[in-house]
């Protein structure tokens, strides 16, 4: 049966564990999967700029033996002529077996999913959801910690517009014993609907602070984010807030020796390049993990759709 993934919560914790198991199997034996999607096509529809996610999906499909057809920007597609997302989804369903779509408008992936006849993977709809980034985050957490429970997770930076932050909170709130430390400027705090929908709903303890260094010693995971210029209507607000948090080696002095530093990338200046060689820096591993999880997800959805 055709199924789409719009939000990380579309996947149960059991399904997440299965995806992680598949990803780890791919890592252990990539040849086993080299022809899993022979002659199948992934359509990547990116109506908003992306480097990692698009290339990651394309690499994932090639490594599964499949092909990729692509629309690289809204300006080079019929969207520039005013075609609706619904019509685009119906049309692309005639050419491909699965769609990965990014769009600046929130809810665009839902519209595509309800109109396409093939599975749709939301690869970012405005500031709303970005479930495959969360899959990358979860595999990274799993490979670094070998557990999803009993972790103190610090989220730092733009917690208001950061869709990856919301998805990670939603995903990790389903496990026992976790605690969140939400570090942001006042203006960029986690929206109340995310707190109500996950943290309060599951009685997950959390604290909100503006002081990164003060909470550093408590953290098992530090998830840094970029203040995203494209989410601001007002340039002045962006300029005022963009340098709120810059992680430097000095700020890591009191951090745990097994802290895992994650970042969905791209970074601008919020993590000093001097940290890249620190063994606690996991953000480039996270990029690679993203590809494996996308491979696992493509396999799962094509299998469920009866395509492979």
């Amino acid at each position: 049966m055709k199924r789409s993934i719009i939000d990380i919560l579309d996947l149960s914790t059991q399904e997440l564990e299965e995806l992680i198991a598949t990803a780890e199997d791919i890592i252990a034996d990539p040849d086993k999967y080299a022809h899993a999607c022979d002659r199948k096509k992934l359509a990547t529809l990116f109506f908003e700029p992306s480097t990692r996610t698009r290339m990651s999906f394309e690499a994932a499909m090639y490594e599964l033996g499949g092909h990729v057809i692509s629309v690289s920007s809204a300006m080079s597609s019929s969207a520039a002529k005013g075609e609706s997302v619904a019509d685009t989804a119906k049309t692309v369903s005639c050419y491909a077996d699965i769609i990965a779509m990014r769009h600046p408008k929130e809810g665009a992936a839902y519209v595509a999913a309800t109109n396409a006849t093939i599975p749709v993977i939301n690869t970012g709809d405005g500031g709303h959801c970005h479930p495959t980034q969360t899959l990358a985050d979860l595999l990274t957490i799993w490979r670094e910690k070998r557990r999803f429970e009993g972790l103190t997770i610090g989220l730092c930076g733009d917690l208001k517009f950061g869709r990856t932050v919301h998805s990670l909170i939603n995903a990790m709130s389903r496990y026992n014993g976790n605690r969140f430390v939400l570090i942001s400027p006042e203006e960029l705090k986690v929206p109340s609907y995310v707190k109500k929908g996950s943290l309060k709903k599951f009685n997950i303890p959390y604290t909100q602070t503006t002081d990164l260094e003060a909470v550093m010693p408590e953290l098992d995971i530090l998830y840094m984010t970029r203040v995203q210029r494209e989410r601001f209507f007002n340039e002045e607000d962006y300029l005022r807030l963009k340098d709120s948090y810059i992680l430097t080696p000095d700020k890591l002095k009191n951090a745990k020796p097994d802290l895992a530093i994650l970042h969905p990338l791209p970074r601008v200046n919020e993590i000093s390049v001097a940290i890249d060689d620190d063994p606690r820096a996991c953000y480039f591993k996270q990029v690679l993990n993203g590809k494996y999880m996308r491979m696992a997800l493509i396999l799962k959805l094509l299998k469920e759709a009866g395509t492979i």
Binding site: S84, V85, A86, H103, P104, K105, E106, G107, A108, Y110, V111, D125, G126, G127, H128, Y193, K196
Partner: peptide, 28 residues
Amino acid sequence: RCITSTEQELKHVFRLTDRENKVYRCIY
């Protein structure tokens, strides 16, 4: 930023997400 702001033909649909507090949220 909602897709309904640019795609005029879409129905505006809200789902009840919190009965106690009478909260509806856009399905998109």
